[in-house]
């Protein structure tokens, strides 16, 4: 009689152990199977700009989150001249084809979008150099992971917009108090249109964003985009387009070379 309740207790414990072991290991293996299935599912998903749709939609959310932290007052750190490299690394040559005569170069600007007629005009290097000259010595960051302190000179893109009354629907000079009048994006293309970037207006109007014509106080070398390139300190180097041929403005995101190949659209730092 004395042993009976203990035996029952034993049986109860054994059952509990068996049940909990089966349930928990089943959940674990089912979880792993589910995770593997999800992994395969993501991999086989339809792609949007070279990334599975699910990833792309989260990357788009990331851009919105990043915008919450964005401020025009956040500047890329600047360095003394002595820290700048003597020879800046050349990393890409898309859009830098040999059929290009810098002597005949003109910058074509369309006040509105790409296909709007009668609103395009041309500028020369002289026009850009007539704008106030700014210099920036910052840590240039490539999306590949390398970085280099480089020294650039040119005109602020915001000064360029101001002078030529660009980037607004109304055709007036941009006014911070009338943000609704501003286009949402600027597009820049090489003369052969082989390389192209789209950049949000806030970043284009950032005080360190330059239409750049000098490197280390000398005219840009050919492979650095002579006669005119973009330098945008708050983006990865893929956005600092070399050899600008065309600029236009748009409310929808203009096509972007590396975005199409699977990278973030904003490439913001």
């Amino acid at each position: 009689m004395k042993n009976k309740p203990i035996l029952n207790e034993e049986e109860k414990t054994n059952r509990t152990i068996r049940r909990k072991t089966i349930v928990s290991f089943t959940v674990l293996f089912a979880g792993f199977a589910l995770a593997f299935g999800a992994w395969r599912w993501i991999g086989n998903q339809e792609k949007e700009n070279e990334q599975p749709k699910l990833l792309r939609s989260v990357l788009n959310i990331n851009e919105k989150v990043n915008n919450l932290f964005f401020s025009e007052n956040h500047l890329a750190k600047e360095y003394p001249k002595s820290e700048a490299v003597k020879v800046a690394r050349v990393n890409g040559d898309v859009g830098m084809g040999e059929e290009f005569n810098p002597l005949l170069w003109k910058l074509t600007v369309n006040r509105h979008h790409e296909n709007a007629s009668d609103t395009a005009f041309q500028l020369t290097a002289k026009d850009i150099k007539a704008l106030p000259k700014r210099e920036v010595i910052f840590n240039f960051k490539c999306i590949e992971g390398w970085n280099q302190i480089t020294h650039w000179g040119g005109a602020r893109f915001s000064d360029f917009m101001e002078k030529y009354k660009l980037g607004t629907h109304s055709g007036k000079a941009p006014d911070i108090n009338h943000r609704e009048d501003l286009y949402k994006y600027a597009a820049l293309l090489t003369p052969d249109s082989a390389y192209y970037v789209g950049i949000d207006m806030k970043s284009m109007m950032h005080p360190q964003t330059l239409l750049c014509y000098e490197l280390n106080e000398q005219p840009l070398p050919a492979d650095q985009g002579y006669p005119l390139r973009l330098i945008i300190t708050i983006k990865y180097g893929i956005k600092s387009l070399k050899r600008i041929g065309y600029i236009y403005f748009s409310d929808t995101p203009p096509p972007d070379y590396w975005h199409k190949q699977g990278y973030d659209y904003d490439a913001a730092l």
């Binding site: 990334q51 990833l55 990357l59 990331n62 590396w258 699977g262 990278y263 973030d264």
Partner: peptide, 11 residues
Amino acid sequence: HLSNGMAFHFV
């Protein structure tokens, strides 16, 4: 696979 790596990493 840099762009793929970045996409997965930032998700």
